[in-house]
Design a protein around this nucleic acid. Structure first.
Lengths: 137, 137
DNA sequence: TATAATCCTACTATTCCGATAGGATTTAAA
DNA sequence: TTTAAATCCTATCGGAATAGTAGGATTATA
């Protein structure tokens, strides 16, 4: 299951993208519109800003805005920042590789091939969807 | 990430499938071979038996055996028993549907379409892989 | 100077995961 | 008939992660 952090983060990004070109968007407005705890959302927005998706302006009239074009923000990037690895086991992860503590040998592991297939099918979806796709229609 | 429960359960099923036709397989043997805590594995085997994948024989010389052909046990079934929903959000789950507590309206939810795509791509992999595929080569 | 916003750190409550404990039950073999 | 070997079952527990909260520091506008 997706963490609330990721779900809220995606919705917030979509909200900001929808208001592209306008004044910066406030956390309060997003929280209200998407039914998210404002304090919780604060920390998520911070993560998204530090990751380079969002920029911010402090003080009165401040808020958040997109730093990149929606078409250029792939879902796979956002997922890796918010949710972590795309893979279901660390030993098939491309960006977060780790050995599995069980498994003496990856090549004879019975679940290895299945895990690779799941990783690749998820990657294909996450690579072709961008933030722009989230705000269509 | 996949829970250890699921990972261990898959490995255990593969182990039992590999020894199909022989005497029942003991938990101890699986635990040792796959580096799994025996007590933890006990509870997982119980789950798999109650779900109908495995049969058991008690007492000396007892153990576990497959109740269905490996080619007939789809990974999607096993995952649903051990890991739960295939979907990342309950509101797109086919077998565990629930409304999302946020989201006043699923049709306007910005992440809905992405979640459906991820669900379907995972389903396609999990539907075409069976236990027989886990023990190939 | 007052107000509105983000920024930042720390804390907390709850849930889930992985594992363990301790026996009850059943069966086969000595 | 006894003993050993196996599953069965329920309860519990520590630790980690998740979701959220608190409280103020900082910055910018009007």
């Amino acid at each position: 299951m997706l963490s609330k952090k990721t779900k809220y983060g995606l919705k917030a990004l979509a909200y900001v993208a929808k208001h592209k070109g306008e004044d910066p968007v406030q956390i309060g407005a997003i929280a209200k519109s998407e039914n998210i705890s404002q304090k919780f959302l604060e920390s998520i927005m911070l993560t998204l800003r530090k990751a380079g998706f969002l920029g911010s302006k402090k003080g009165k009239g401040g808020g958040y805005y997109l730093r990149r074009q929606p078409e250029d923000i792939k879902m796979v990037e956002v997922m890796r920042i918010l949710e972590g690895p795309v893979s279901l086991v660390p030993c098939v992860s491309l960006n977060f590789y780790e050995r599995c503590d069980d498994c003496p040998d990856e090549t004879t592991c019975s679940v290895h091939s299945l895990m690779v297939q799941l990783r690749d099918s998820n990657l294909s979806v996450l690579n072709k969807n961008t933030l722009a796709d989230l705000i269509k229609e």
